[in-house]
């Protein structure tokens, strides 16, 4: 069997929901692929887009951003700010010639260990399909521009 490509993924979690979902996946012994390495922040609102660029430039093939469900952020509504930055970030990536699909935003409550594990597994497959991140390569056909209208983001 030929060696399949094993992407390296950095995942950002918030202390209150998604990090606890990861804890919960652990306690419940739910299995997911080992390609994701998590960083804990207090809130998805703490996610500075440069963290994502840093991860990609240091060799990550994809970045998973996670936080509490809309309306459930421990700091009330900071995950909406994360959502806005995420949209902006995806456009920035296109500017760099990187597939925007390499960054993904996922909501997971503290109770959703199973869901988080599923999302991680799905994302690993998606990045595996994209192949290693090649900064020097010209933009591929996957790089369809993001639609210019952003999703409606409730305040």
């Amino acid at each position: 069997m030929s060696e399949q490509f094993e992407p390296v993924i950095i995942g950002f979690t918030c202390n209150w929901c998604s990090y606890r979902a990861a804890d919960m996946a652990g306690t419940a012994r739910i299995k997911y692929p080992p390609n994701v390495r998590l960083v804990r922040l207090m809130c998805s609102g703490r996610l500075d887009p440069t963290f994502v660029l840093k991860a990609l430039s240091n060799g990550a093939d994809g970045v998973l951003i996670t936080g509490c469900h809309p309306g459930e952020c421990h700091y009330l509504e900071q995950n909406y700010k994360a959502l806005r930055r995420y949209h902006l970030l995806r456009r920035t990536l296109i500017g760099f010639g990187i597939e925007p699909e390499r960054v993904k935003l996922v909501w997971a409550s503290a109770a959703e260990g199973v869901q988080l594990a599923k999302q991680i597994a799905g994302f690993v497959d998606e990045i595996r399909a994209l192949g290693p991140l090649a900064w020097s390569m010209p933009s591929k056909q996957q790089l369809v521009a993001e639609p210019s209208v952003m999703e409606e983001v409730p305040a």
Binding site: V8, I10, T50, F51, L53, K54, A55, L56, N58
Partner: peptide, 24 residues
């Protein structure tokens, strides 16, 4: 920022880095 950036560096210490500024 320093803590998070350093942690990312550490997590990827043994991967292939890219010179982002040169790329830009």
């Amino acid at each position: 920022n320093e803590q998070v950036m350093s942690q990312i560096e550490g997590l990827l210490m043994f991967e292939q880095p890219v010179d982002l500024l040169a790329m830009a």
